[in-house]
């Protein structure tokens, strides 16, 4: 069963490898402008706090409690990204895991409604450590639309656009380890490789809804990589899953007794301060095509304009300068 440690979800698979460990962080970030432009990677501005839902059973609704998992605060129109980290044993490569991520039970990679297990046609999961992070819904090859929190019931979420309802909201995460035989195979190959002399260098009108779902924000360069293993290499019996309820940050204090995180900076403020944007050096690898159903979803900005007739605040394009190149083990730290 996953654990919650220092605001990270940690998955362990000791029956396969004693030190096998995979963790997911929920990184705060700025919302990129929702225009036709495709942006580089925005920074990580620190972790969202995560708490067990059952600790607040008297202050959360019955449906939220029955789903279990954790609860996390987000402001309306706030963005986030998921940072993946596979721990590696000292004498082996990072332990691979397959990660399935859905928002409102709509798969963020394929756009399909939630299905158990892992599926290949189309591939509906990512593989860590190959995939270092996920910032949004895969809408076309090498491009995602950023995860942006919007109140459930207002019709802004991808869940609403694809399923026609807003029943679930939040994020759903499932993690599967590699089967032991497949792990031993890549571990042996790694050992063989390192024995050789060559070392490889490796602010809007607030809705009354307490719960949030994820809508589609601006466009960002980000590849979702195809699985290099066989589908049968994944140990589906050892899969773990977590429901992440997104609570409006306005209600965080009355629910948990803790102060809500401050509002994140806007892309305009961040850019004006001359702070860096990022590119991933692995971004020239092949990418999955993006979800067919996700290709045609409307962004939060487009829906806002349609519903209110006004442009969404802070949506103007910004100067990003030359992005800093980051590698797979580096977190995109935004000095703010």
């Amino acid at each position: 069963m996953p654990t919650l440690e220092s605001n990270r979800l940690v998955f362990r698979f000791p029956h396969i490898e004693e030190s096998a460990q995979f963790s997911i962080e929920f990184q705060r970030t700025l919302r990129i402008p929702d225009t036709d432009r495709t942006y580089s990677l925005p920074p990580g501005l620190g972790l969202f706090p995560l708490r067990h839902v059952e600790d607040f059973a008297d202050r959360l609704d019955h449906a939220t409690i029955s789903r279990g998992g954790v609860v996390m605060p987000m402001w309306q129109a706030e963005a986030m990204w998921l940072n993946f980290h596979s721990r590696r044993p000292y004498d082996g490569p990072s332990f691979p895991v397959a990660i399935k991520v859905a928002a409102g039970k709509i798969n963020a990679v394929s756009g399909e409604t939630w299905r158990p297990g892992l599926n290949r046609h189309p591939q509906d999961y990512m593989v860590s450590p190959q995939q270092p992070w996920l910032d949004g819904f895969a809408v076309k090859p090498g491009v995602i639309r950023q995860f942006v929190a919007m109140p459930l019931g207002d019709g802004y979420t991808v869940e609403h656009q694809i399923s026609g309802t807003e029943e679930w909201g939040g994020l759903q995460i499932q993690v599967a380890p590699l089967k032991n035989h497949a792990w031993q195979k890549i571990r042996a190959a790694w050992r063989e490789k390192v024995r050789t002399p060559h070392f490889a260098e490796d602010r809007l009108c607030d809705s009354s809804s307490r719960l949030m779902g994820l809508g589609a924000g601006g466009l960002m360069k980000q590849a979702i990589y195809p699985d290099q293993f066989q589908l049968d290499d994944w140990d589906l019996e050892s899969m773990d899953r977590v429901f992440v309820t997104l609570l409006h940050a306005r209600d965080w204090k009355s629910t948990t007794g803790e102060s809500a995180p401050h509002h994140p900076p806007t892309a305009q403020e961040y850019s004006k301060a001359g702070l860096p944007w990022f590119d991933y050096y692995g971004c020239d690898q092949a990418s999955l095509p993006g979800g067919e159903k996700l290709a045609s979803i409307a962004s939060v900005g487009e829906l806002f304009k349609k519903k209110t007739g006004a442009a969404m605040p802070n949506c103007e394009d910004v100067e990003t300068g030359v992005p800093k190149i980051v590698g797979p083990r580096q977190v995109r730290v935004g000095e703010w």
Binding site: P2, T3, H52, R67, G69, W168
Partner: peptide
């Protein structure tokens, strides 16, 4: 200790 303090419970969804 892990079970008491840190395990994340799964539910119906």
């Amino acid at each position: 200790v892990l079970r008491i303090v840190r395990e994340v419970r799964d539910g119906d969804w």
